[in-house]
Nucleic acid binder design. Structure first.
Lengths: 337, 337
DNA sequence: TTGAAAGCGCTAACAG
DNA sequence: CTGTTAGCGCTTTCAA
């Protein structure tokens, strides 16, 4: 049998209440007995049961992380960042890949509730606001990561997607591009819409007319983006630059260009979004918009843990400014119109 | 307050024991009361507390997954595969990225024990066998994934690394290469040693003398592999092909080659190992050895859950045969010696 | 077929 | 400063 608080109490010749107090550093215990109990706990290699403690209303020290897909490098990096900060604070992460399917999301959330997790970080695409709202009403701490629902009373940490999109496209414009296409992942995602809005803003600021033939909507895959890029590049007047709304899509664009015999950046400039590790690895290294993933992960955990600890406050909406990272996938357009 | 088993019992006019029995489908209950209780549970949106159940000795339906680094695409894909099968069976995954540091590993394991997880899947590099052994003695189900410790009485699922290495290099030999280098990640990892052994076996079978100047040891990063590749390629007589012991290392090789003005595969053939998603994305698409990740993930979970359910058996050591996937990073050597 | 009652390991008043 | 005791929500004999 595993050693319990009773074993310790008996061995130390005190009551379980005393042991509990030294474990939690609550109440007042004489230094002497405290030391003795501690020693015995060491000797007997005692580890308090989180389960039993949780049943009495204490933390489970577990946080759920909802993301679309753990195998997607962006979310894997997000998860790692969150995990790291969680670990520092003593919290474990349970992973929930929902594939952006409401049914999976609901299923995971239900399980997390049954397990009495301390809080949930939501980084999935289009959660039903009602579902999250109900969690809040059940006093389950929630935080949004890499997205936000303005009307939801929950902490959130994200970058300014509109600014990011704007910056990406204005970079292309500064290089001299005028026929710039954009490939988005799914316009139902607020993120994507904002990035495209940034695209529009940059165009309009440069007095470049918006041409809806230059906006393509892909699925979430690099494959999908490749198809979009094909359509774009096989037009009579193809764009000289493409803004892919995330790096994964950008890799699809790169492959399409390669297959069509185009050399990046000379025949086509490409800029991505996210700055995941693969952005550096692809050929050519990708110019992109950097999301400070490590920082974002740390910050959501910090906010969520604050709430878990009961420091009730007004929800904080953190918006970080992403940065343009110029690498080698962008340059001047070969021929000016 | 959350609704408990008592609320249901009261509403249904039965005892909590009865409710418990319909929840768990144990004991004999009249169809009539069963239905009534079920209805009421629905109506009241009752969800049994996993925590309370766990305290009485039942499953927590939680499994710990120990990997070196969740941000590493190979492990992210592994984690996703494991998560998926776990979800199908009702188990949640808690992620533990150890960075192959024994201290982190120990810390995570301790936490997992306190939370009474049902089992642990170990996919980290060099766990101390003693630590895992002690878990087994505490009757905590353990399974090894993508690695094995033959002397440990635990299930394991992995590919035949030696065969994989052999297949990679024999492919190069068949193409006509004779000066073939290998870049390994860390020879303390059994995996890596076996892959290098496969390399050696293929050479010796082809009567190519082993040249220890052609084996480089990198750290775990693409950067490290790039440095190794530089050293290799700047020799007076550089290799015509490089076997990188995993795809991440292979991307480093590709970058080094690119920087040195070499064209793959014409100036240098490269083969990787793992077949992660980026293998298809890099330029040129990477010839590599495929690990059937989805299948591996499914199988460890199945084995582990068997053990969790108490179907005690002799540990199963599953070894799958990886397959060569020929893409565009390999071809004949330009000039035969 | 059902229910009363004794835990599971720990926390938190409340007494002493 | 320390101990007694009543739960937390559920499972599981054992009787009825």
């Amino acid at each position: 049998m595993k050693t319990t608080i009773y074993d310790i109490a008996k061995a130390a010749g005190v009551s379980i209440a005393t042991v509990s107090k030294v474990i939690n550093e609550t109440g007042r215990i004489s230094a002497e007995t405290r030391e003795r109990v501690k020693e015995i706990m060491q000797e007997m290699d005692y580890q308090p049961s989180v389960v039993a403690a949780a049943l009495t209303g204490k933390s489970t020290f577990t946080i759920g992380l909802l993301i679309p897909d753990l195998a997607n490098p962006f979310y894997a990096e997000i998860a790692r960042a969150v995990e790291d900060r969680g670990q520092e604070l003593g919290f474990n992460l349970v992973m929930c890949s929902t594939d952006n399917k409401p049914s999976k999301e609901a299923q995971y959330i239900s399980l997390l509730k049954q397990k009495k997790v301390d809080g949930i970080i939501v980084s999935t695409g289009f959660s039903e606001e009602a579902l999250l709202q109900s969690l809040i009403e059940q006093h389950i701490p929630i935080a949004l990561l890499a997205r936000d629902m303005p009307s939801l009373e929950a902490d959130s940490v994200k970058v300014d997607d509109l600014w990011g999109g704007y910056r990406a496209v204005s970079h292309l414009i500064e290089l001299g591009h005028r026929r710039i296409a954009v490939i988005a992942e799914n316009l139902k995602l607020a993120n994507m819409r904002e990035r495209v809005q940034g695209y529009c803003r940059a165009l309009s600021e440069a007095d470049i007319p918006f041409d809806d033939e230059l906006v393509e909507v892909s699925d979430f895959s690099a494959e999908g983006a490749k198809d979009c890029a094909y359509r774009l590049l096989e037009r009579p007047k193809p764009p000289t630059a493409i803004f892919a709304c995330n790096d994964l899509l950008a890799t699809g664009v790169i492959r399409a260009a390669r297959e069509l015999g185009l050399t990046i950046p000379w025949d086509l400039s490409v800029v991505g979004f996210d700055d995941i590790a693969v952005a550096e690895i692809v050929d050519p290294p990708l110019t992109t918009i950097n999301q400070p993933i490590a920082r974002m992960g740390r910050q959501v955990i910090d906010l969520l843990v604050e709430e878990i600890r009961g420091l009730k406050r007004i929800p904080r909406k953190v918006v970080l400014t992403p940065e343009l990272v110029v690498r080698q996938s962008t340059t001047f357009p070969r021929a000016v119109d």
